[in-house]
């Protein structure tokens, strides 16, 4: 498992946090993800790249059962979280989503809530009974983890929508962190952001890696190269290649991967 980039938590034995086995996903008639199998290691960032419509977003949405939220969408196969299949009949998707958080392409602060209410939304909406002090400390911890605390600590009561786009996205990260997930999925989190905000999010990813397992979907190959430990390349619903990021970008084994990363299509 030691690929030379073990990082801070090298003393912990690397484990596969999330294992995908023969995953197929459909939208009504469309077969969007075709028999994908791969595994995501704990405390690592994995990037999924590929051209538009290759199924990378669909794949990541299958990992916390968000795919089935779309009418007519369904998925088959197995996704094991710590060895337990999240697609088992007796598993509640709601529970899965609390352990596997998600950040979306567009920043989505709840417009009716203040900044602090947004951060605590995952707790309050789930009916978790906590004291004011506990709540405040969760808000502060999450905002600090999302590198937003210093910018908003004086205006926690202001509406979430009053922040800039990049701040809103970090607010969404904080909101996802507040429920203490084990895995964070990010679906093109920077595509709506300017370069400076993008850089902040990328720094943030590298900081969060020590505590979380992160899967990021991106159409930006530089971003994948900069942030991830492993990279998966998808094309027309198939997983073409999955390996260490350095290897994928310098020495891909598959012709399609090479064509894509050298910019011949996509």
């Amino acid at each position: 498992m030691d690929d030379g980039r073990g990082g801070k938590s090298a003393k912990i034995i690397m484990a596969d946090k999330l294992v995908v086995k023969n995953l197929n996903a459909y939208f009504s008639q469309i077969h969007a993800v075709r028999d994908v199998s791969l595994e995501f290691e704990e405390n690592r960032i994995a990037a999924i790249i590929g051209p538009s419509g290759c199924g990378k977003s669909t794949l990541v949405r299958c990992l916390n059962r968000m795919h089935e939220v779309v009418p007519g969408a369904r998925a088959t196969g197995e996704v094991l979280l710590d060895g337990n299949n999240i697609y088992d009949d007796d598993v509640d998707p709601v529970q899965v989503r609390r352990r596997i958080g998600m950040v979306f392409q567009k920043p989505t602060p709840f417009p009716t809530m203040s900044i602090e209410d947004n951060v605590a939304a995952g707790l309050t909406l789930n009916g978790v009974q906590i004291s004011r002090a506990e709540r405040d400390s969760v808000v502060e911890r999450s905002l600090r983890q999302a590198a937003l605390w210093d910018e908003v600590k004086d205006r926690l009561r202001r509406p979430g929508a009053s922040l800039s786009g990049g701040q809103q996205q970090r607010l969404c990260v904080a909101r996802a962190l507040a429920v203490q997930p084990e895995v964070i999925l990010m679906d093109e989190p920077c595509s709506a952001l300017d370069p400076i905000s993008t850089a902040r999010i990328e720094e943030l990813l590298l900081e969060l890696k020590s505590a979380y397992t992160i899967v990021i979907v991106t159409h930006n190959m530089q971003q994948a190269a900069r942030t991830s430990d492993k990279t998966a390349f998808m094309y027309t619903g198939n997983l073409v290649e999955y390996g260490a990021t350095k290897q994928i970008f310098t020495n891909p084994t598959r012709r399609e991967t090479e064509d894509y990363i050298t910019g011949r299509f996509g």
């Binding site: 938590s9 912990i12 946090k17 704990e42 405390n43 710590d82 009949d89 007796d90 598993v91 509640d92 709601v94 529970q95 899965v96 609390r98 352990r99 707790l123 978790v128 906590i130 506990e134 400390s137 969760v138 911890r141 983890q145 203490q180 084990e182 020590s210 505590a211």
Partner: peptide, 20 residues
């Protein structure tokens, strides 16, 4: 068990086997 050592845990929540 799966929680990493340096994880800051403020709110402890029950995450028992999901009861559908």
């Amino acid at each position: 068990d799966s929680s990493v050592a340096e994880r800051v845990t403020v709110v402890r929540r029950e995450r028992a086997k999901p009861h559908v």
